[in-house]
Nucleic acid binder design. Structure first.
Lengths: 122, 122
DNA sequence: CGTATTAACTTGTGTTTTGCAAGTTATACT
DNA sequence: AGTATAACTTGCAAAACACAAGTTAATACG
C-alpha cells in the first residue's frame, strides 16, 4: 500500500513563502501540468500524455490528485465520472501564470547556451 | 561511486523553456539556495545550514556543485581554497529574482488557507 | 612551529520518490 | 451483450533524499 499524499498530510519546511511554494510545486512535473492547462484550457487524462515531456501515468495520476487536493485544478464537470471529464485550472492555478512566464523568460535568456534548441514562445 | 550530475550530462525533456527551467531547477532545494543568496548577498557553506529549512549537508554539497556547473553561483574568490570562501550569485543566478518574487507572491495569496503561518515578506 | 579547531565536504545506510512496463476497471459505443 | 479504450493501479528496479557519522585540510592559538 502506498503512502497517500494530500494537502492535510503536508508538513511545511518553514514559514517562508518561497519555501512553501516549493513545498507544494517544487518537483519536475506539477508545473508541467499547469503549463499544459494554461496552453490548452482543458485537458483529459490521456491528453496530458501527448506532451513532449512524456510523463508516466503513475506520476500523472499522483500529481493530478495532488493538484486537485490543493485546489489548483478540478474536473470540468464535478458531477460526472472521470472518463472524458477533462481537468482545468481553478483561479488559484491560473494565478500561477506569472510564475511560469518569469521562469520561461529566465530559461530563454540564460539556458540557451546549454540548450540551444530551446524555443522562444510560451 | 556516485553518479555525478553536471551540466554536460543533463538531458532535456523538451525544447519548452518552462520544462527546461524545471529540468534545471525543479527540485525542492536549488531555489532555496538561490533565495538565501538573494537575501544575504554571500553565504558560506555552513551558513546555508542556518536557514530554517535545514538542508542536509550531502544535498547542499551536491546542489552547490550543480548550481556552480550551471553558472548560477560561484565562489567569491575563485583563486582561494573553499574554506571561508563564500558563494554568491552570478548574473544568471541573480536574474532568477523575478521568478522567486512571483512564486512568493503566489504563495502568499494562495497558500495562506493551507498554511496560516506563512509570512508576508521575501 | 606544532597542535587543536572547525569549515567544508564525503560516506554509509535506510527510506522515499521516480521511471517504465504491464495489468485492471469501467464507461460508452455498436 | 460485446468490444474498444480512457483512466487509472500495481510491481519492481533505479535514482534521489534524509540522517548520522566520518574525513580532510586550512586557520587559529599557544
Amino acid at each position: 500500500m502506498e503512502k497517500e499524499l494530500d494537502s492535510e498530510t503536508l508538513d511545511w519546511r518553514s514559514v517562508c513563502p518561497i519555501a512553501s511554494g516549493l513545498d507544494v510545486l517544487g518537483d519536475k512535473w506539477s508545473l508541467i501540468i499547469v503549463r499544459d492547462l494554461i496552453q490548452h484550457g482543458t485537458r483529459t487524462y490521456s491528453e496530458f500524455g501527448d506532451s513532449p515531456e512524456r510523463i508516466s501515468t503513475n506520476i500523472l495520476a499522483a500529481r493530478l490528485k495532488w493538484l486537485t487536493s490543493l485546489g489548483l485544478i478540478e474536473h470540468v464537470d464535478p458531477e460526472r465520472a472521470s472518463r472524458n471529464n477533462a481537468y482545468r485550472l481553478t483561479a488559484s492555478g491560473l494565478a500561477l501564470r506569472p510564475v511560469l512566464e518569469e521562469l520561461g523568460r529566465w530559461s530563454q535568456n540564460h539556458l540557451k547556451a546549454l540548450h540551444p534548441d530551446i524555443v522562444d514562445i510560451l
